[in-house]
C-alpha cells in the first residue's frame, strides 16, 4: 500500500497563559492512498489539532508531515490545491447564494469557469440542492449547509478529502446522504480522512480507524481487527477499552 500522508514523530505544543499544553505528543502514522481513514477519541485527544496540521492550517512544533510527498512546513502552498477540506464549522457567506459561495471557492481554487459551472450544477443536483441554488445560505438548515460545504470542498477535484465531524448534529436522512457521498468520492479514487464522535460512522465507513487519547495515538487498525484484539462486540467498546470511562474536560 502506497502512503499518501506520512506522519513522523508529530508534536504540537500550545502556550496559553503561561501554561504549556502538549496537544499532540509524538504521533506517527501513514494514510494509504485510496483508503477511508477515521480518527476517533475523546474531547481534547488531539484529533482536531492533528487535523489542522494535516490540512496546513497550523504548523507542527516538531516532527514531519508529508502530504502527497510535500512537506507541510515548507511546501504548504503545494499541498493546498491537492486537498479538499470540509471544516467542522460550516463556513459559508450568509449573504451569498449557494451558487455564489461555490463559485467563490471554485475561483479561489482556480477551477476553469466552464468546468466549474458544469460541476456546480452536477453536484447541486446530486445533493438535492438545485432548487435552493440561488437562495442566500444564511437561511439554510444545518443539513443543507453540510451538503453545500462538501461540494465546496470537491469542486477542484482534490486527491485527499479532509472531513471534520461529517455528521455531527445532522438528522439520520442527511447522515445517510453524507455517507453515500463519502463512499462515492472514495470510489472515484479520493483518499478520505475524517474525524468523528460516532462509532457507528467509523465502523461503517472506515477502512482503518485511529484511536487518539491525551495527544497520543493509542491504536490504529481496521475496525474488525480492533474489535477482535480487544474482545469487543463493537467500536464503542473498543473506544472505552483504549480511552477509559473517565469524562474529559
Amino acid at each position: 500500500m502506497e502512503p499518501i500522508i506520512e506522519v513522523k514523530n508529530l508534536v504540537k505544543v500550545f502556550h496559553s497563559r503561561g501554561r504549556k499544553i502538549t496537544a499532540v505528543n509524538d504521533v506517527s502514522f501513514d494514510v494509504f492512498k485510496g483508503e477511508i481513514f477515521g480518527m476517533i477519541g475523546p474531547n481534547g485527544a488531539g484529533k482536531s489539532t492533528t487535523f489542522s496540521m494535516l490540512t496546513t492550517l497550523i504548523k507542527p512544533t516538531s516532527g514531519i508531515i508529508k502530504v502527497s510527498g510535500f512537506d507541510v512546513d515548507k511546501q504548504d502552498d503545494k499541498i493546498r490545491p491537492l486537498i479538499g477540506i470540509v471544516p467542522q464549522k460550516l463556513s459559508l457567506y450568509p449573504l451569498l447564494t449557494a451558487r455564489e459561495n461555490l463559485e467563490l471557492m471554485g475561483n479561489l481554487y482556480n477551477v476553469p469557469k466552464n468546468v466549474m459551472e458544469e460541476k456546480i450544477d452536477y453536484y447541486l443536483e446530486l445533493v438535492g440542492l438545485e432548487a435552493s441554488a440561488d437562495r442566500y445560505t444564511g437561511g439554510f438548515s444545518g443539513g443543507m449547509k453540510q451538503r453545500l460545504s462538501v461540494i465546496a470542498a470537491v469542486l477542484h477535484d482534490p486527491q485527499i478529502l479532509f472531513w471534520d465531524e461529517p455528521s455531527t448534529g445532522l438528522d439520520p436522512q442527511t447522515r445517510s446522504v453524507i455517507w453515500k457521498l463519502a463512499r462515492k468520492f472514495n470510489d472515484e479514487g479520493k483518499t478520505l480522512v475524517f474525524t468523528t464522535h460516532y462509532m457507528e460512522e467509523a465502523d461503517n465507513l472506515c477502512d482503518r480507524v485511529a484511536v487518539m487519547d491525551s495527544g497520543k495515538m493509542v491504536a490504529l487498525d481496521n475496525p474488525e481487527s480492533l474489535k477482535e484484539s480487544t474482545g469487543s462486540a463493537n467500536l464503542e467498546e473498543v473506544f472505552v477499552h483504549f480511552t477509559g470511562e473517565e469524562v474529559r474536560d
Partner: peptide, 10 residues
C-alpha cells in the same frame, strides 16, 4: 469561520 475557510484554499 469564513476567514479560516478561505485561508484553507490555495
Amino acid at each position: 469561520g469564513t476567514l479560516v475557510r478561505m485561508l484553507m484554499t490555495p
